[in-house]
Amino acid sequence: MPSENLAITWRRIPERYRLAGSYCENCKTSYFPNRKLCPKCRRKGRLASKQFSGRGRIYSFTEVSAGPAGFELETPYLLAIVELEEGPRLTAQIVGATEKDAKIGDEVEMVFRRIMEDSPEGLIHYGYKFRLAKRCAPK
């Protein structure tokens, strides 16, 4: 089972739990995940923390039918590139939907789910996934 260094997990908790990213006050660009340096403005950049809303659209997606170790119970699942309404794109699972329910451009909203567990006695990793937004949720 994959496991990562505890300190790395801990450092990424604000990003993974609530989409805490960053924003350059100089060029007005939003970044997710967090950045220490604005790649556009370099040393002129002024980075501040930014809380993303969790709303976005499906930019592209695929159905994973051979998932990695630790994802056996969830496979098959949808994996998407989500474009957040603030601009950045990220990769995340889409829950509660199959290939038939989702399409490119659908509105999605962040949900908080278990990502994986190191081992039966190990740490549980929580983080963001997305679901189809209320308006286009399948009935």
Partner: peptide, 16 residues
């Protein structure tokens, strides 16, 4: 619950 839901994830969603 879905396979990736537990008492903590449900609590977070209700709290939000």
């Amino acid at each position: 619950p879905d396979v990736d839901e537990d008492a903590a994830t449900l609590a977070v969603e209700a709290a939000r």
